[in-house]
Amino acid sequence: MAGTDPIHQFVIEDIFPIATIGGEDGLHLAFTNSALFMVATVAVISLYLILSSSGKRLIPNRVQLLSELLYEFVANMVRSSAGTEGMKFFPLVFSLFTFILVANMLGMVPYFFTVTSHIIVTFALSMLVFLTVIVYGFVKNGPKFLKLFVPAGVPGYILPIVTPIEVISFLSRPISLSVRLFGNILAGHITLKVFTGFMVTMIPLGFFGAAGSLLPLLMGIALTGLEFLVAAVQAYVFAVLTCMYLNDAIHPSH
């Protein structure tokens, strides 16, 4: 039954253990299948980008062109959302975008582990963005960063209502950012597995079962297309929201 279990694909298995800190129930560290795919993601991105652009062709070939398009795409995203000043965060946004995109895309390969289907990974990435915003916001603007919670042009008597809302919305950013990515990837992979699992279950049920299994097959094909779209869109959404949050840190007054 493990073949059609939709949860099995998210199980983390040790490839080799590293250390267990603090006894039997303590912190267990290991190189896992998740770690393997994180390494694979970084390797794919780095090797592709570095090797494809190593020729430094004035007239790019197709491989180099893809790297340049990716660069310009993210650069324009950062520049349009966070301004030219935001370009100092370009490597961060670029790393986040490519990491999530490639991790999602690798996850679409059958039997591959999807790194972003674990809340702790997406939460860590969103906390990285959140803490960057807070630290940079205070370092650059000092106490003026708190203006973020006091929208300009709002009458004084509304401020007691608006400011808590702004604070809550600010604090919920890392949660919404991480849950959005995690939820989309997790739900998509479960749905895909459930529908294609129906097919496996239906085929042995005689003629009608086998004929009816075409429906989940078609559904599976459609969902695969949708999941590729989701994989790309979620990486884009994460990157765009990161840019917008960074823009808050750079220009805290609305």
Binding site: D14, L27, S34, A35, M38, F99, L125
Partner: peptide, 13 residues
């Protein structure tokens, strides 16, 4: 699994 994931995410990222 959080420890291992965070460790490797930190290293790889």
């Amino acid at each position: 699994t959080f420890g291992s994931q965070l460790l490797w995410l930190a290293i790889t990222f």
